[in-house]
Amino acid sequence: MKTDIILCGVGGQGILSIATIIGEAAMNENLYIKQAEVHGMSQRGGDVQSNLRISSNPIASDLIPLGGADVIISMEPMEALRYLPYLNKEGWVITSSAPFINIPNYPNIEDIKAELAKLPHVVAIDIEQLAKDNQVPRSANVILLGAAQKALGIDYDKLEAAIRRVFARKGDAIVEANVKALSIGREQQG
């Protein structure tokens, strides 16, 4: 198998914890992994992205070529659109539908939603609202991960097991909240 994933959002939204869970699941399956991250200045409220590549064969480049990504997982709808040139023609976009507006010229959100709706394979959900409604307010990003499960090509049970390992030292309550968030996300992928 080979899945090339672009994780994106705004600095501080926690895209790297999604990457950690996917990485843990892939590592446990003895898959090859490369994950290029962005650290430093752009983390201060700017756009951030991470290239995550998992494969059963060795991976050469840390970066995903244009048109090569199988999935875009985005914590923010406009940020999902930013990386479209990296998506392959049959690729999936899994994104939060709630805008993060910290710039004066943020586009009209209805235009962004319309643009997203034109894509062949897209899941756009209000993860923040779902997280609040389901009493897992800190696990919105894991809801997004659950919604991406099929597109990632990783078995649900393996993602859940990875969550249990990644959050184990934070206590049972946090583990269970994230497991619940994953299942809420799964139901959203239709």
């Binding site: 705004v10 600095g11 200045m41 752009s42 983390q43 201060r44 409220g45 700017g46 756009d47 070529p65 244009l66 048109g67 090569g68 406009m78 940020e79 659109l81 930013r82 479209l84 040139p85 990296y86 998506l87 392959n88 023609k89 690729g91 910290n102 710039i103 010229n105 943020y106 586009p107 235009d111 962004i112 643009e115 894509l119």
Partner: peptide, 22 residues
Amino acid sequence: DINSQLSTLNSQLVVARPPQLC
């Protein structure tokens, strides 16, 4: 030939989001 693989997807809506003081 990367040009043949190049995604035709892109969006004109996207604007820059520069970093800023917290």
